[in-house]
Design a protein around this nucleic acid. Structure first.
Lengths: 121, 121
DNA sequence: CAAATATACATTGGAATCTTATGTATTAAA
DNA sequence: TTTAATACATAAGATTCCAATGTATATTTG
């Protein structure tokens, strides 16, 4: 996904990594499905991550040394837990701060010109 | 561009349209180069639009009926002014609101989990 | 108990968006 | 006079995400 029912979904590109790393900086370890559910609940369904976006990202982050994994058997199923590496924790903090700054800059920019959106026809 | 010196530039994908339409909802008409300079100044250089992203977008928005153009001769040069159509003004308002909501949702989501970004090693 | 739903992983093809690089040309400043 | 600024434009490539599909186990519900 990134099924963002309330938003034109293009807005969110680039924030998935931030969301995931930030979550893992607070929770010791999480598995993919758990992440999707957590984000969904925390945002009242406003942000929903798709597997097609999430799983490849998790694999990439592991390959890049930002995450480590441990497999845990749950009955006959194998659950894959992800945790931050030291590098991942650092990156997490940076990305969150970057988003905050960007968000602030954007909102200021939009404020400057959104007093009355009008049609100058 | 989208040369965002302070940000990992991926964060901004999807906001270019919002920025441009919002600008044009406040200024009767603007031309491409003017838009890049305006955004640059208004954000203290934090957001810089590249021509490679801006011009194709302007063309697309015109093709989609959100913008109209008028060419003005400046000496030997032709300057291309863009203005919002009625449809464009409506879209502008929607996109700005969507960004605000998304921004708010994201910041709340990040707040929930950023008390202390840490390495659980 | 059977069927539907939830849990849980994964990959692939394609769309959309942006960057980098390149190109042309005029005008102003150093 | 040469450099920088103004002003447009396009093309190739990277990145990121979505939709679709696939597999399989576990739980809930009718």
């Amino acid at each position: 996904m990134y099924i963002c029912l309330m938003y034109s979904n293009e807005l969110i590109k680039g924030t998935l990594k931030t969301i995931v790393l930030n979550l893992l900086s607070k929770e010791k370890r999480m598995y993919g499905y758990e992440i999707t559910q957590h984000v969904k609940e925390a945002t009242d369904g406003k942000i929903q991550l798709t597997e097609g976006a999430l799983y490849p990202l998790l694999h990439r982050l592991e390959a890049d040394g930002l995450l480590t994994t441990e497999k845990v058997n749950i009955g006959k199923r194998v659950r894959k837990y992800y945790s931050l590496t030291k590098n991942g924790a650092e990156t997490s903090g940076n990305l969150v701060q970057e988003f905050r700054e960007f968000s602030s800059t954007m909102n200021r920019l939009l404020d400057t010109f959104t007093l009355k959106p009008s049609y100058h026809g």
